[in-house]
């Protein structure tokens, strides 16, 4: 565990281009350890792009260029000696649409352990990991008798919880969430938010959201972005009550977005 005082994610003058289009412009920020930080801003402001930099999944597409610095857990993730596999092990990601793999519930949860172990893990280790992870996301009661059901047949809310649960056996430090509730109904959203609160402290959570009310309810700190730039980064309540930047104020008032 890293020292709570040092930020989990630090970026300095981060620029990113998709081909010729510049999606991030000189973004510098410190994301605090153990808190929930939300990224808000209108569509196309670069919040998802920024999130996808933190575990370098952006680079799947060959036409992405990045300059600047990102330090995750005090390690520059663009250093040549960085292992993407290890980075992604400690920085988990939850996607907009729940995307459990087309395997059983059980195999989804232990997928990470299987791919990251040098020798095949024992049945007992796996069983224990499944129960622990599913308990942590409040799915154990619902699914303990259906562990071998195909995960893609679950309700969306359960799928999304499962997508969080499958990160946990890898003991990540950071969990990135890209609009995790946008495919869910009100109850599902409430359940995921509750889950975020219960995971807070143990994990640093960064959540991209379109929903300002959600950012306000569910996050400790809030970053407002516009046209690829970081406009404002403060405690959530301060940002919503007394925004410093007029653009932030206009956005949270709903003048544009």
């Amino acid at each position: 565990m890293s020292d709570p005082a040092t930020p989990s994610i630090v970026t300095r003058d981060l620029n990113l281009w998709y081909g010729k289009f510049q999606a991030l412009r000189g973004v510098s920020l410190d994301i605090k350890h153990g808190l929930i930080t939300s990224l808000i801003g209108p569509s196309g402001c670069g919040k998802t792009t920024l999130l996808r930099c933190f575990n370098r999944v952006n680079e799947r597409y060959g036409y992405v260029t990045t300059t600047g610095e990102i330090r995750v857990l005090e390690k520059n993730i663009y250093d040549p000696d960085v292992s993407l596999i290890e980075l992604r092990r400690s920085v988990g990601m939850v996607f907009q649409r729940p995307n459990p793999l087309p395997l059983s519930v059980y195999e989804n949860v232990v997928f990470g352990l299987r791919v990251h172990s040098d020798s095949p893990p024992t049945r007992a280790t796996l069983n224990e990991a499944v129960e622990k992870a599913l308990r942590e996301v409040n799915l154990w009661q619902d699914l303990k008798d259906r562990l071998h059901q195909r995960a893609t047949t679950l309700q969306l809310e359960q799928q999304q919880k499962l997508c969080i649960a499958r990160l946990l056996p890898l003991k990540p430090e950071i969990i990135l969430m890209d609009e995790p509730c946008s495919a869910l109904d009100v109850e599902g959203t409430a359940a995921i938010e509750e889950l975020m609160f219960s995971l807070k402290g143990k994990y640093t959570i960064v959540i991209v959201t379109h929903n300002m009310a959600q950012a306000r309810r569910a996050s400790d700190e809030c970053i407002f972005m516009l046209l690829g730039q970081r406009i404002e980064h403060r405690r959530t309540e301060d940002l919503f009550i007394a925004p410093e930047n007029p653009k932030t104020a206009e956005y949270i008032e709903g003048r544009y977005g």
Partner: peptide, 12 residues
């Protein structure tokens, strides 16, 4: 989305 899920979990 399956590829993304697996890649984000750190598969080779």
């Amino acid at each position: 989305s399956y590829r993304e899920a697996a890649i984000a979990l750190g598969v080779t």
